Amino acid sequence: MSNNIRYLEFPLEVKYFFRNKKLNPYITGGLSYFKYENSHSENSISLEYGDNVSLNFGLRLEHKLIDRLYINIESNFSYQIEPVTTTIDYTPYIFSISTGIDYRF
Rank of each mutant, 00 (worst) to 15 (best):
Ile45Trp: 13
Phe95Asp: 01
Leu47Tyr: 14
Arg104His: 06
Asn52Gly: 03
Ser2Gln: 15
Phe17Gly: 11
Asn56Trp: 00
Ile73Leu: 02
Ile66Cys: 01
Gly29Cys: 03
Ile45Gly: 06
Arg68Leu: 00
Gly50Glu: 14
Ile27Thr: 12
Thr28Met: 11
Thr87His: 07
Asn72Tyr: 07
Ile66Ala: 04
Ser98Arg: 04
Ser39Lys: 13
Pro92Met: 07
Tyr16Trp: 14
Met1Phe: 08
Asn72Met: 05
Ile5Leu: 08
Ile101Pro: 05
Thr99Phe: 02
Gln80Ile: 02
Ile97Val: 11
Pro92Thr: 11
Glu37Pro: 00
Asn52Leu: 12
Phe34Lys: 02
Thr85Lys: 07
Asp102His: 03
Pro83Tyr: 11
Tyr36Arg: 10
Leu69Ser: 03
Ile88Ser: 02
Asn76Phe: 00
Asn72Pro: 03
Glu74Asn: 12
Val53Met: 05
Asn24Arg: 14
Tyr16Arg: 07
Asn52Asp: 09
Asn72Asp: 02
Asn24Ile: 12
Ile27Gly: 08
Asp67Cys: 00
Phe17Cys: 10
Ser2His: 13
Phe95Tyr: 06
Asn76Ala: 04
Gly58Thr: 00
Ser98Cys: 08
Asn4Gly: 12
Tyr90Thr: 10
Arg6Ser: 10
Asp51Leu: 06
Ser96Trp: 00
Leu23Asn: 09
Glu82Thr: 05
Thr85Phe: 08
Glu62Tyr: 04
Asp102Trp: 00
Glu74Trp: 05
Ser98Ala: 13
Leu8Ser: 14
Tyr70Lys: 01
Arg19Ile: 14
Asp67Glu: 11
Ile94Lys: 00
Ile66Phe: 03
Phe95Asn: 00
His63Tyr: 10
Pro11Val: 04
Tyr16Phe: 11
Ser96Arg: 10
Leu61His: 05
Ser32Asp: 12
Phe57Val: 09
Asn3Arg: 14
Thr99Cys: 03
